[in-house]
């Protein structure tokens, strides 16, 4: 097996003595669609926050494409090639859809105050490139028509897509999606599956998603990891996971989603 794109080893995280993640080890191979599932409060979002530099694990190592990510600030991790969406929509309010997506290009461009004030040729070229990339990302996720609307006034499902477009605009190698299907209806979920596949197939971006809809997880992912009470309890193909007794117990034990798995 080749060196994984993302590799976590022995991650421990706690808040005020409260253990949230315990000795979590985990790897994502380049080119995969991998999923992270687990009951509410299992620590999935916290794990994303460790990977993206928002939380500092007290133990363990995180490496991405051979680079040590620990101690890097979130913006450096994004620049290194990891983009994310948030479980709760975090679009920039009062700004248009296009302006929101343009934010992703910030770490791929460099013009500063002087360039802006003097309107240097390099600055104007860069602005055009930012617009073009943002527009292309919006078209890719299928909401280009709404580019000039204030982002937070869009229907919920479209806001989710704008968030994905914004993450794509950072030109990532790895995309982390935190519950991208939450709040979507059946049709929208089917479209999301298509979108996730095309992000991987057409843009060659590795995907790791957190999802509660196990049906969706089983259909879209090649590897599934299960987190329960801050511990990684199972890892395998969707089929292996569906029949793993520890997984079934974790879901039954938490009583929500008990039959969602089956």
């Amino acid at each position: 097996m080749t060196e994984p794109l993302l590799h976590l080893a022995g991650i421990g995280l706690s808040f005020a003595g409260n253990t949230v993640l315990q000795d979590v080890s985990f790897a994502v191979q380049e080119g995969r669609v991998a999923s992270l599932i687990g009951p509410n409060g299992a620590g999935k979002t916290s794990l994303f926050n460790c990977i993206t530099g928002f939380y500092r694990p007290r133990a363990g190592r995180i490496s991405f494409a051979g680079q040590d990510l620990r101690r890097l600030k979130p913006h450096r991790i994004t620049a290194a090639g990891i983009a994310r969406t948030f479980q709760n929509l975090r679009l920039f309010r009062e700004m248009t859809v296009l302006e929101n997506v343009m934010s992703g290009m910030h770490c791929r461009t460099r013009a500063g105050a002087i360039g802006a004030i003097l309107r240097l040729a390099s600055q104007r070229r860069e602005e055009e490139e930012i617009r073009a990339v943002a527009h292309e990302c919006l078209a890719f996720v299928g909401v280009a028509d709404e580019r000039d609307r204030i982002a937070t006034t869009l229907p919920y499902g479209h806001q989710r897509r704008v968030e994905i477009a914004r993450a794509l605009a950072t030109r990532p190698r790895l995309l982390l999606l935190d519950e991208p299907a939450a709040g979507l209806n059946g049709g929208e979920k089917r479209e999301l599956i298509g979108l996730i596949r095309s992000i991987r197939d057409q843009r060659a971006i590795t995907i790791l998603l957190i999802e509660h809809d196990t049906g969706l997880v089983m259909r879209v992912s090649e590897r599934v990891s299960v987190l329960d009470h801050g511990q990684m309890i199972a890892e395998g193909t969707p089929r292996e996971i569906q029949t793993d007794p520890r997984v079934i117990e974790a879901y039954l034990g938490s009583d929500e989603d008990a039959d969602a798995l089956l």
């Binding site: 913006h75 920039f92 302006e99 910030h106 930012i130 950072t170």
Partner: peptide, 27 residues
């Protein structure tokens, strides 16, 4: 000119949501 520029937009991103801005690669 500052307002309509990469830096001007970054100011708004950070003002509206620091975490989302950081996640988009903005220092």
């Amino acid at each position: 000119r500052l307002s309509d520029s990469r830096l001007g937009r970054a100011w708004l991103y950070v003002r509206y949501d620091e975490d989302a801005a950081e996640a988009m690669g903005i220092d």
